[in-house]
Design a binder for these strands. Structure first.
Lengths: 210, 210
DNA sequence: TTATTTCTAATGGTTTACCATGGTTTTTTC
DNA sequence: GAAAAAACCATGGTAAACCATTAGAAATAA
């Protein structure tokens, strides 16, 4: 894909240790010009003005979700290779990341060799998946029931519910009608096939959706 | 404590990225001879034969808990400074680590400067606590509200509620009237000063009452 | 054994959550 | 630019949760 031997590689992670570790590892590979950001928005700003050939993107960032940033990056710069880096070993999250255009996914427990090989894979047009990620993706049978996908609003409402807020409180916070909140509630219950909010919140937290 | 200017510093972490990051950070400080292990037992073997002035110890290791390793290290080598390094921001875990003899605790989101300063603190005989750790330790004193004591029945009802059961279902299970269940519900809400069951369940789980 | 707590249950009422359905507008996607 | 998805709002109704208070029986502690 890129025959050039000095690629711009951007690392986005809010853990300085991880940042430092990745930098150190990738510096040794030699062929990358490294940039790093601790915020997703800062990375978006960067690619606005500059070229990023590869982006290593943490999924859990304090200014938003890596899932969303991945989509945003791909919209602005479709040719950029985006690889997720996370502790999140959730099957659903991996798939959602790839659906959002991600070129790969690496767990933070991967070793140096694995990381570098994955990135090389992606550069050559392949999908970068660390060993454990591949195992998780294949272990489909274990996770038998499909987790519902939530819309942004539903996510917000669910989070607010989980905090113990009533419909009226949520409506006030989100500047929408109580009726609308109740509609979201109903849709959430249906999607999760739950009989009440407590059950719903339980399932959602168990599956790291909150 | 140690006037020597080349201290043996051992890092125990099963995440290669973190390991690499810490090494890179601490190499820059210059005054440490670095050793690293991905398993707690390997580190224990090391201090059997060698001197470790400082040990940075991950709490979550795949061959055991850092809490236990901390205690074991302190038994074998009481003078070794042991500092916990973890994503675990649980108050109780921090305290347990310090009770086990730990000289400090640093969250993995700490930045380079903070880490180095904490270690220096510990070397000078102080306690090494990253900023966020300090906040967590103090936060609960404000969060000083007495946890209500639950009766047996209330505990049962609460657990059932947390599973998503309705009052009717709980009544059937416990062979009591729905009215009684609702009385328990009310008493629980009052005891916790919660406005609804979701809030109650949240607080209860946060405080490990369920 | 008395005192206290806990468990039980009731009356009667208010609020919030849940259900079914249908419609409009905005946003996203193809 | 059409089709689909998401977000919004509404009516009208049922079920469940929440509130205040009282009170007897049973278990437990003083």
């Amino acid at each position: 894909m890129y025959k050039n031997n000095c690629l711009n590689l951007v690392i986005v992670d809010d853990h300085p240790m991880i940042l430092e570790g990745l930098k150190s590892l990738l510096q040794q590979a030699g062929k990358y010009q490294l940039f790093s950001f601790t915020k997703g928005l800062a990375a978006l700003d960067f690619i606005q003005e500059n070229t990023a050939h590869i982006i290593l993107l943490d999924i859990v960032l304090n200014d938003g979700s890596g899932l969303d940033f991945c989509k945003a990056i791909k919209q602005k710069s479709p040719k950029t290779i985006v690889i997720g880096i996370s502790n999140q070993a959730e099957r659903s999250i991996i798939f959602r990341f790839l659906e959002n255009g991600g070129n790969g996914y690496i767990l933070k427990n991967a070793d140096a060799h694995e990381i570098i090989q994955c990135i090389d894979n992606a550069i050559n047009g392949g999908v970068a998946l660390s060993k454990e990620v591949q195992e998780i993706m294949l272990s489909a049978s274990s996770n038998n029931f499909e987790l519902p996908r939530l819309t942004k609003r539903e996510q917000q409402v669910l989070e607010s519910i989980a905090k113990g807020n009533t419909s009226a409180e949520i409506a006030e916070k989100l500047f929408i009608s109580v009726i609308t909140v109740e509609t979201h509630r109903r849709n959430l219950l249906q999607k999760f096939n739950a009989k009440n909010m407590i059950e719903l919140v339980k399932v959602a937290t168990e599956n790291k959706l909150i």
